[in-house]
Design a protein around this nucleic acid. Sequence first.
DNA 1: CCAAAAATACCAGCCTGTTGGTAGGGTGTT
DNA 2: AACACCCTACCAACAGGCTGGTATTTTTGG
Lengths: 220, 220
Amino acid sequence: MESKMSAIRILLADDHTIMRRGLRLLIESQPEFCVVAEASDGRQAVQQAEATMPDVAVMDIAMPNLSGIEAAQRIATAQPATAIVILSMHSDEGYVLRALKVGAKGYLLKDSAEGDLIEAIKAVHQGKTFFSPEISKMLVEDYVREIRARGTEDTYDLLTSREREILQLLAERQSNKDIALALNISVYTIETHRRNLHEKLNLHSLAELILYAVRKGIIS
Amino acid sequence: MESKMSAIRILLADDHTIMRRGLRLLIESQPEFCVVAEASDGRQAVQQAEATMPDVAVMDIAMPNLSGIEAAQRIATAQPATAIVILSMHSDEGYVLRALKVGAKGYLLKDSAEGDLIEAIKAVHQGKTFFSPEISKMLVEDYVREIRARGTEDTYDLLTSREREILQLLAERQSNKDIALALNISVYTIETHRRNLHEKLNLHSLAELILYAVRKGIIS
DNA sequence: CCAAAAATACCAGCCTGTTGGTAGGGTGTT
DNA sequence: AACACCCTACCAACAGGCTGGTATTTTTGG
């Protein structure tokens, strides 16, 4: 019998022959990987994907005839079983976003460590996602940015750090119970803090607190 | 000379002794890892972190005395060189968000594959981030959702003029009773309209409605 | 060390919003 | 006539926030 499970079948799409060569060598340095098709533009990529039904498609984002993104979209739609890894020189939000929206499971920068490509292929083949550290960082930062507190003036200065913390959680629409659990303190204590917030800010409902938080840039 | 670079020094914090044991075994199965300290609550974790200056701190989110999050915050502030991996049973957005905000570099669910912890420790030690697949998925979805929400907005068109009127009054912080009086209709009718707003906009609280109104420019 | 501030905790009662139903009357379309 | 949609109206049950108290422990600063 076979000593290993069947190899991961890979489609490689990049308009630069040299790049493709390099990638192929890199990929096939792993015994469990097998490049079953190559394409030098988007349209070919879609055709090859149909013909060979690869497990993973590794594609450049910038290709003639049909862009990598569009090709990715068609492949993702027609063959959901094929996981797509985008290889790109760009770390712009726009590119990443579009790639994710069309269903790419991984996004790698071309200057990644070579090990990352190996990792990425394995990851997406297991249904996970994989991103270059820079991309990952960007995703996280974007996520956090929305909610991060900054503004410090007038009444806000009156608040203790605990109160600010609770204000933020309230603004994130967490209930007293949620907050109590998260901070590992009693619901009653949250009530007290809330009352102090009401008093210090001269606001007397959750709605007002949330609007205050919006104005302060604590949320959205 | 040494055949390997010096080991990664790890602090382990979890209130359950058994869990700690298991984690320690798991971690020390890797020769390049070395657990240099253990803590069974948040305060101890902070102390141990100060005393041992570990490269990586692996900590549970729910601990007595000082929550894992709070402990993480203090450690991240006092020792930026220590990368923090949060271990948690919860995949709630709120928890993840808070962990990221206080500076955690990784977030793992307790039911992760054991390999993930190894990977996570290596990743954060290299300055990368690492998340359980579920968490990663959530971050990505959240990211895509946020951006898409800006591009395509049409839900507002679904509302009838009466519903818009009521939405506005709600956004002005008028109560059901106020509105009923102002429009000379029953409180029950307001309740119905409100429910329809909830359904059509897929929002389910006054707070959400008000935030929606802010985004739409209906108020402030 | 002492006083003030902050954080914690509890209870009871009231008010409001939320959600599950249900339903009649008006209007406009097919 | 049948249908869809909107506006209106009602009830009951439940969840949660808001406010009035009170009180202990921990932290902070002079």
